[in-house]
Amino acid sequence: MKDRSPALLMAPALAWLTAFMVVPCLLILALAFFRRGIYGGIEYTFTLENLGLVFDPLYAGIFLKSAWIAGLAALIAVVLGYAAAFAIAAAPARRQPALLFFAVLPFWSNYLVRTYAWIVLLNREGLLTGIARWFGYDGELPKLLYTEPAVVVGLVYNYLPFVILACYAPLSRLNVEIGEASRDLGASGWTTFRRVTVPMTFHGIATGFVFVFVLSIGNFVTPALLGGGQFQMIGNLVYAQFLTANDWPFGAALSMVLIAIMMGLLTLQTFASEKASGSGRHD
């Protein structure tokens, strides 16, 4: 007979999630199918207009822009994070916990504080300018703060520890003899990295990428603080619909599409890693 205790153990958590996460979310999302009232309220007549508006070139453009920024941030975070995780996993075993601790340390501070720190760094008379002055450069630095790269940098910085953790797990479990076997069969160090190390740790790379992407595409704090007032990503748009434009139905429609994109990616990633672990469970 099948053991039912896992289901029983999960029941309280599932009930909690359903009652306080899933149901409220569904209630909000349901608003997408109603008309906006004249004075900002909700008129309960069914419509698909809100969802249709999401695909209006103006808003679709913001979606694409957000995806571009999130994709760029995820890519950079994965490259930097994988390199860092690789270096940590290659360090002497007794030093690894400390290195990992320091790599993840910024994660424990407040998100807002971390982002404000970047404002201090990138400001027109901020730390970077100060450093340039100290080296004797007294021209104008290009505008750093309130630019698209500043947003990408902020996102990469905030989510980098996550990628390091995601990549460190499979890298540290890698059997060194498999890399040696590759060398023994005639592969160079680089070929071994490309054909053995990366495929065997792809699960971590995919997890890191998808998480940074998903967290970035819906982010509204970093674009607001580092991108300045005029810079909009989906998160800012949703924020505005609910809090300033008072158009809850359109905000709900935007959220619905955003959540669909996130869920799609996470599902894809889960399937991909299940497939990968199916062939990588043994050493």
Binding site: E177, I178, E180, D184, P199, D283
Partner: peptide, 19 residues
């Protein structure tokens, strides 16, 4: 280096490529 030697090693753990 190992990849330049006309010698091959069969590892005790086999070290097969799992992927």
């Amino acid at each position: 280096p190992p990849n330049r030697r006309p010698v091959n090693l069969m590892f005790q753990s086999y070290a097969l490529f799992p992927h």
